[in-house]
Simulated assay, not measured.
Amino acid sequence: MTETSVPIGVVTVSDRASRGLYEDKGGPGIVAALSELVASPWHPVARVIADERALIAETLIALADAERCPLILTTGGTGPAPRDVTPEATEAVSDKLMPGFGELMRAVSLKAVPTAILSRQTAGIRGCSLIVNLPGKPSAIRECLDAVMPAIPYCIDLIGGPRLETNPAHCIAFRPKGA
């Protein structure tokens, strides 16, 4: 990690993983994808927490406000089960919702599995942080990140975050001319 390394929040929301009963594959899946997609120096600020709405909200607030992560990616808790409350926690701590992220992720995932319609992924802005809820399965995480990553750097620019460059071999970020 260097002085100019960008902190990126990586939050696994899982009762079993947080208790050590299940190996966290979601968080490492996010880190693996970002390792290919992001060219700027960055480092993960990882958390593995239980499916508790207040805990999820508290973690997102800490990563945005105290850790100053311009990007926070969550995995897990986006389905229809009673304990799946990640979108509600994200919405509760966001200043603005960014529904296009969830819409695009569902559209991409529907090409692979019909149950993608059950996913409630969303995204929101808190201060200078973009929070994006991803699915829990590593292959779905990559699929969704590949879809939304071209828009993430410019979104971070617009909310006052640091300039994030992508690896053009894996992702070309869109920025208007002159941005």
Rank of each mutant, 00 (worst) to 15 (best):
R68M: 09
R68H: 14
R68V: 12
R68D: 08
C69Y: 04
C69M: 05
P70V: 05
P70I: 02
P70C: 08
P70E: 04
P70K: 06
I72G: 09
I72D: 05
I72N: 09
L73I: 06
L73Y: 13
T74V: 06
T74R: 12
T75C: 04
T75W: 01
T75K: 03
G77M: 11
G77F: 06
G77Q: 10
T78E: 05
T78Y: 12
G79N: 10
G79W: 07
G79F: 09
P80V: 14
P80Y: 08
P80S: 10
A81N: 11
A81H: 12
A81K: 08
A81E: 15
A81M: 13
A81L: 12
P82S: 15
P82R: 15
P82E: 08
P82T: 11
R83G: 08
R83A: 11
R83I: 05
R83V: 11
R83Y: 06
D84H: 11
D84M: 13
V85N: 14
T86Y: 07
P87M: 13
P87V: 13
P87R: 11
E88G: 14
E88T: 12
E88D: 12
E88Q: 15
A89L: 06
A89V: 01
A89Q: 02
T90G: 03
E91Q: 14
E91K: 11
A92W: 02
V93T: 03
V93M: 07
V93L: 04
S94P: 07
S94I: 01
S94T: 02
D95Y: 04
D95H: 14
K96L: 15
K96R: 15
L97Q: 15
L97R: 15
L97I: 12
M98H: 06
M98S: 08
M98Y: 05
M98W: 06
P99E: 02
P99Q: 11
P99S: 11
P99I: 10
G100A: 08
F101N: 10
F101A: 13
G102N: 09
G102R: 10
G102W: 07
G102E: 04
E103D: 14
E103T: 06
L104H: 09
L104E: 08
L104R: 13
L104P: 04
L104N: 05
L104A: 07
L104T: 12
R106H: 10
R106S: 13
R106V: 15
A107E: 10
A107H: 14
V108L: 04
V108W: 06
V108M: 03
V108C: 08
V108I: 13
V108D: 03
S109W: 05
S109F: 07
S109L: 03
L110G: 13
L110C: 14
K111Q: 09
K111L: 06
K111I: 00
A112Y: 02
V113H: 01
V113K: 01
V113Y: 00
V113E: 00
V113W: 00
P114E: 10
P114M: 08
T115S: 02
T115K: 00
A116Q: 02
A116D: 01
A116F: 02
I117S: 02
L118Q: 01
L118G: 01
L118H: 01
L118I: 01
L118N: 00
L118C: 00
S119I: 04
